[in-house]
């Protein structure tokens, strides 16, 4: 695993990806700090970093696009399969390398609250809490990027798809705000999502029976619950999406609240997608 980690770090800094990522994060951090804290004369750094999560929409695809797609493209994945270790170690090595790149601008940003504290009343705990949360949010988003990168052998395709997913993730709370909040529309929206999930199950397993069973059982549960307690469905879909949106859950940290549930949610997402990535790579051995 150490070998993979070293090789990945080498790849980040031999090319320009590592530098571009760090440069962009620091650039925007500087600009936002200047706007919020210097011009706005407000010493809380969490406002600067809190307005920054949108940068991930572009930064995550840059960071993750080549992680697995390039291995497949260069046929170096053959080497990874032939080496005496398993895919868990490969994915772990790559994730740690990526975390190392991500921690650099975060570590530098730790100076900002200290400097600001000299010019006014600051809540350092809250500032550093939001920095930590910013880092963990990044890891969760990047694990989605890594998974997307493992889907294709074309890094531009991976970048495009990842950008789209990040964009939807960022704006989804705004978008669902335009949906009607009646119980019926929630019911229909949930039913559509279940169908989409069943399609994904079918696509990954090519097992029509399993996908069909999944759709019937979950749709059935949805329908039964809706017919018993229609009142619970009012605004349910919008609420679920708001809970699932990774970006909007970050807002709590700006409000000086260290939301452990959100941290737990981010870490779960990271583990889930890294697990999917391992499964995807293992599955390739079987096809």
């Amino acid at each position: 695993m150490k070998a993979i980690l070293k090789r990945e770090l080498g790849a980040y800094f031999k090319g320009f990806t590592g530098y571009v990522y760090i440069f962009f994060i620091l650039l925007f951090m500087g600009i936002l700090c200047y706007m919020q804290n210097v011009q706005g004369r407000y010493p809380s750094f969490e406002y600067a970093i809190g307005n920054m999560s949108f940068i991930y929409i572009a930064a995550i695809p840059i960071l993750t696009m080549r992680v697995f797609s390039e291995e497949k493209h260069q046929k170096t994945d053959q080497l990874l399969y032939a080496l005496p270790f398993n895919m868990n170690q490969v994915v772990m090595g790559k994730t740690f390398a990526m975390m190392t790149v991500m921690v650099i601008p975060v570590a530098i940003s730790c100076i900002f609250p200290l400097i600001l504290s000299r010019f006014g009343e600051t809540n350092l705990a809250s500032a550093y809490g939001s920095i930590v949360a910013f880092f963990i949010l990044g890891i969760a988003l990047a694990s989605i990027g890594i998974f997307i990168s493992a889907l294709t052998d074309n890094q531009m395709m991976a970048a495009g798809l990842c950008f789209f997913v990040m964009l939807v993730n960022y704006f989804v709370t705004t978008l669902v705000g335009y949906l009607p909040t009646s119980a019926l529309s929630s019911f229909i929206s949930i039913a559509v999502v279940i169908l989409a999930a069943a399609f994904v199950v079918w696509y990954l397993t090519k097992n029509t029976l399993a996908a069909g069973m999944f759709a019937v059982v979950v749709e059935g549960a949805n329908w039964i619950y809706y017919s018993i307690r229609p009142i619970k469905y009012g605004g349910l879909f919008t609420d679920i999406i708001k809970q699932l949106s990774m970006f909007s859950r970050y807002d709590a940290f700006i409000m000086s609240e260290f939301d452990l549930a959100a941290i737990f949610y981010y870490i779960s997402i990271a583990f889930l997608f890294l697990f999917f990535t391992v499964q995807l790579l293992e599955k390739r051995r079987w096809s």
């Binding site: 090789r7 080498g10 790849a11 031999k14 090319g15 260069q74 046929k75 170096t76 994945d77 053959q78 080497l79 032939a82």
Partner: peptide
């Protein structure tokens, strides 16, 4: 195809 990393 030899599995080489071109950047190394």
């Amino acid at each position: 195809q030899p599995p080489l990393y071109p950047d190394m």
